[in-house]
Amino acid sequence: MTEIHTPRLLLRRWTADDLPFMADINADPQVMRWVDDGSVYDLARTAEAIEEWEEEWDEEGFGLFAVELLGSGELAGFTGLSVPHFLPQVLPAVAISWRLGAQFWGQGYASEAAHASLEFALQDRGLDRVISVSRVGDSASDNVIRKLGMVPELETTDPVHGYALQVHAIDLTEFQA
Protein backbone atom coordinates (compact mmCIF):
# COMPACT_ATOMS: atom_id res chain seq x y z
CA MET A 1 0.00 0.00 0.00
CA THR A 2 1.39 3.38 -1.02
CA GLU A 3 1.61 5.90 1.82
CA ILE A 4 3.46 9.16 2.19
CA HIS A 5 4.07 10.85 5.52
CA THR A 6 4.73 14.58 5.71
CA PRO A 7 5.27 16.51 8.96
CA ARG A 8 1.50 16.91 9.45
CA LEU A 9 -0.21 14.63 6.95
CA LEU A 10 -0.65 11.05 5.83
CA LEU A 11 -1.30 10.56 2.11
CA ARG A 12 -2.80 7.13 1.56
CA ARG A 13 -5.16 5.04 -0.53
CA TRP A 14 -8.91 5.27 0.03
CA THR A 15 -10.96 3.17 2.45
CA ALA A 16 -14.72 2.68 2.80
CA ASP A 17 -14.59 4.78 5.99
CA ASP A 18 -13.54 7.83 3.93
CA LEU A 19 -16.78 8.01 1.93
CA PRO A 20 -18.99 10.04 4.30
CA PHE A 21 -16.20 12.53 5.04
CA MET A 22 -15.32 13.06 1.38
CA ALA A 23 -19.03 13.32 0.58
CA ASP A 24 -19.33 16.15 3.13
CA ILE A 25 -16.43 17.95 1.46
CA ASN A 26 -17.95 17.46 -2.01
CA ALA A 27 -21.36 18.68 -0.78
CA ASP A 28 -19.96 22.12 0.12
CA PRO A 29 -20.70 24.69 -2.62
CA GLN A 30 -17.70 26.75 -1.48
CA VAL A 31 -15.37 23.80 -2.03
CA MET A 32 -16.90 22.84 -5.37
CA ARG A 33 -17.03 26.38 -6.77
CA TRP A 34 -14.03 25.78 -9.07
CA VAL A 35 -14.76 22.11 -9.91
CA ASP A 36 -16.45 21.21 -13.21
CA ASP A 37 -19.65 23.30 -13.43
CA GLY A 38 -19.61 24.12 -9.71
CA SER A 39 -22.25 21.56 -8.77
CA VAL A 40 -21.90 19.70 -5.51
CA TYR A 41 -21.62 15.91 -5.39
CA ASP A 42 -23.99 13.74 -3.39
CA LEU A 43 -22.96 10.56 -1.58
CA ALA A 44 -23.49 8.36 -4.67
CA ARG A 45 -21.44 10.65 -6.94
CA THR A 46 -18.65 10.81 -4.35
CA ALA A 47 -18.64 6.99 -4.13
CA GLU A 48 -18.30 6.83 -7.93
CA ALA A 49 -15.44 9.33 -7.83
CA ILE A 50 -13.54 7.39 -5.18
CA GLU A 51 -14.03 4.20 -7.19
CA GLU A 52 -12.63 5.97 -10.28
CA TRP A 53 -9.65 7.26 -8.28
CA GLU A 54 -8.89 3.77 -7.01
CA GLU A 55 -9.20 2.33 -10.53
CA GLU A 56 -6.63 4.86 -11.75
CA TRP A 57 -4.25 3.66 -9.03
CA ASP A 58 -4.67 0.11 -10.32
CA GLU A 59 -4.30 1.06 -13.99
CA GLU A 60 -1.63 3.77 -13.86
CA GLY A 61 0.33 3.12 -10.65
CA PHE A 62 -0.64 6.55 -9.33
CA GLY A 63 -3.80 8.35 -8.37
CA LEU A 64 -5.45 10.63 -5.88
CA PHE A 65 -4.42 10.14 -2.28
CA ALA A 66 -6.76 10.54 0.66
CA VAL A 67 -5.19 13.27 2.83
CA GLU A 68 -5.44 12.57 6.55
CA LEU A 69 -4.29 14.84 9.39
CA LEU A 70 -1.73 12.98 11.45
CA GLY A 71 -2.72 14.65 14.72
CA SER A 72 -6.45 13.96 14.60
CA GLY A 73 -6.94 11.30 11.91
CA GLU A 74 -9.47 13.56 10.15
CA LEU A 75 -9.87 13.25 6.39
CA ALA A 76 -8.97 16.67 4.98
CA GLY A 77 -9.62 15.82 1.31
CA PHE A 78 -7.40 14.63 -1.52
CA THR A 79 -4.29 15.39 -3.48
CA GLY A 80 -2.48 13.44 -6.12
CA LEU A 81 -2.11 12.56 -9.75
CA SER A 82 -4.47 11.78 -12.59
CA VAL A 83 -4.56 11.72 -16.36
CA PRO A 84 -6.58 14.78 -17.52
CA HIS A 85 -8.66 13.01 -20.17
CA PHE A 86 -11.14 15.92 -20.19
CA LEU A 87 -8.48 18.13 -21.85
CA PRO A 88 -7.20 16.20 -24.90
CA GLN A 89 -4.77 18.88 -26.08
CA VAL A 90 -2.48 18.33 -23.06
CA LEU A 91 -2.28 14.55 -23.45
CA PRO A 92 -0.23 12.59 -22.81
CA ALA A 93 0.16 14.30 -19.46
CA VAL A 94 -0.23 13.64 -15.78
CA ALA A 95 -1.85 16.37 -13.69
CA ILE A 96 -1.57 17.10 -10.01
CA SER A 97 -4.67 18.29 -8.17
CA TRP A 98 -6.10 18.75 -4.71
CA ARG A 99 -9.38 19.38 -2.94
CA LEU A 100 -9.65 20.02 0.78
CA GLY A 101 -12.58 20.75 3.03
CA ALA A 102 -13.02 24.46 3.73
CA GLN A 103 -12.13 24.03 7.41
CA PHE A 104 -8.65 22.94 6.29
CA TRP A 105 -7.95 25.94 4.04
CA GLY A 106 -5.36 28.57 4.86
CA GLN A 107 -3.16 26.26 6.95
CA GLY A 108 -0.68 25.13 4.30
CA TYR A 109 -2.11 21.60 4.06
CA ALA A 110 -2.78 21.79 0.31
CA SER A 111 0.76 22.95 -0.42
CA GLU A 112 2.29 20.33 1.90
CA ALA A 113 0.25 17.51 0.38
CA ALA A 114 0.74 18.68 -3.21
CA HIS A 115 4.51 19.00 -2.74
CA ALA A 116 4.66 15.43 -1.41
CA SER A 117 2.55 14.23 -4.37
CA LEU A 118 4.79 16.05 -6.84
CA GLU A 119 7.88 14.52 -5.26
CA PHE A 120 6.19 11.10 -5.49
CA ALA A 121 5.45 11.68 -9.19
CA LEU A 122 8.90 12.82 -10.18
CA GLN A 123 11.07 10.71 -7.90
CA ASP A 124 9.10 7.57 -7.06
CA ARG A 125 7.04 7.08 -10.23
CA GLY A 126 9.72 8.38 -12.58
CA LEU A 127 7.59 10.93 -14.38
CA ASP A 128 9.61 13.57 -16.22
CA ARG A 129 6.89 16.22 -16.17
CA VAL A 130 3.69 17.06 -14.29
CA ILE A 131 1.04 19.65 -15.12
CA SER A 132 -1.68 21.37 -13.16
CA VAL A 133 -4.94 22.59 -14.69
CA SER A 134 -6.81 25.35 -12.89
CA ARG A 135 -9.64 27.68 -13.70
CA VAL A 136 -8.65 31.26 -14.32
CA GLY A 137 -9.56 33.21 -11.18
CA ASP A 138 -8.98 30.38 -8.68
CA SER A 139 -6.39 32.31 -6.67
CA ALA A 140 -6.11 29.69 -3.90
CA SER A 141 -5.04 27.03 -6.41
CA ASP A 142 -2.76 29.55 -8.11
CA ASN A 143 -0.96 30.05 -4.78
CA VAL A 144 -0.35 26.32 -4.40
CA ILE A 145 0.79 26.06 -8.03
CA ARG A 146 3.27 28.90 -7.50
CA LYS A 147 4.63 27.25 -4.31
CA LEU A 148 5.21 24.06 -6.29
CA GLY A 149 7.41 25.97 -8.73
CA MET A 150 5.14 25.30 -11.70
CA VAL A 151 5.19 27.78 -14.57
CA PRO A 152 2.41 28.85 -16.96
CA GLU A 153 2.40 26.86 -20.15
CA LEU A 154 -0.96 27.22 -21.87
CA GLU A 155 -4.25 29.07 -21.63
CA THR A 156 -7.22 27.21 -23.01
CA THR A 157 -10.94 26.70 -22.60
CA ASP A 158 -12.69 23.84 -20.84
CA PRO A 159 -14.21 21.84 -23.72
CA VAL A 160 -17.36 20.96 -21.75
CA HIS A 161 -18.07 24.00 -19.58
CA GLY A 162 -16.48 26.78 -21.66
CA TYR A 163 -14.57 28.60 -18.91
CA ALA A 164 -10.95 29.69 -19.16
CA LEU A 165 -8.25 27.32 -17.92
CA GLN A 166 -4.59 27.84 -17.15
CA VAL A 167 -2.17 24.93 -17.55
CA HIS A 168 1.05 25.07 -15.52
CA ALA A 169 3.92 22.61 -15.73
CA ILE A 170 7.11 21.52 -14.03
CA ASP A 171 9.67 18.99 -15.10
CA LEU A 172 12.16 16.95 -13.14
CA THR A 173 15.02 19.36 -13.83
CA GLU A 174 13.06 22.27 -12.28
CA PHE A 175 11.74 20.47 -9.20
CA GLN A 176 13.14 21.40 -5.79
CA ALA A 177 12.57 18.48 -3.41
Rank of each mutant, 00 (worst) to 15 (best):
L87I: 13
A27P: 05
P159N: 04
Y41S: 07
D17Q: 13
A47N: 09
L148N: 05
L87C: 11
S134W: 09
N26Q: 11
V151Y: 04
A102R: 15
L100M: 07
Q176W: 15
W98M: 00
F120R: 01
L19F: 04
N143D: 14
M1T: 15
A114D: 09
W105T: 01
R129S: 07
E55D: 15
I4H: 14
P152W: 02
G77V: 01
A95L: 01
S72K: 11
S141Q: 01
L148P: 03
V40H: 08
R8T: 14
L165F: 06
P152S: 05
M32N: 02
T157L: 14
S39Q: 10
G73N: 07
A95S: 14
E60M: 08
A116G: 02
W53C: 15
Q103C: 13
V167T: 02
V167P: 00
T79A: 09
F62C: 01
Y163E: 09
T46M: 03
V83L: 01
G106K: 05
I170H: 04
T79I: 04
W53K: 04
L11E: 02
H115R: 09
I145F: 03
Q107I: 08
A110E: 09
W34D: 01
R8H: 13
E56G: 05
M150Y: 05
H5S: 10
A93F: 04
E56Y: 07
L64R: 06
L118T: 04
A95V: 01
L19M: 05
P92I: 11
D36G: 08
L43P: 00
P88A: 02
E174I: 10
V130D: 03
R146P: 10
T157F: 07
W14V: 01
H85N: 14
A114N: 11
M32G: 00
I131H: 00
V35E: 06
R33C: 02
N143F: 11
V35I: 15
D158W: 11
E174F: 10
V151M: 13
Q30G: 10
R8Y: 11
W34Q: 04
H5E: 13
R99N: 12
V40C: 11
R99Q: 13
S39K: 07
H161A: 15
I50Y: 06
R12N: 05
S111Y: 14
L70N: 07
P7Y: 06
T15M: 09
Q166T: 10
R8M: 06
S72Y: 10
S139D: 09
Q166Y: 12
W34P: 00
R45E: 13
P152K: 15
V133G: 00
E3R: 15
E56R: 05
V151P: 15
D128M: 08
L127Q: 04
A16E: 15
G162K: 11
G137Y: 10
H5V: 14
A23K: 08
S117M: 03
D171S: 08
E56S: 12
E55M: 13
I170M: 09
L81I: 01
R146Y: 12
L75H: 03
I50D: 07
A95G: 02
E59K: 14
D171I: 02
P152V: 06
L100E: 04
E74P: 01
D142V: 14
L43I: 11
D138A: 10
L9N: 03
Q107K: 12
F78G: 03
Q176M: 11
L87A: 04
S132Y: 08
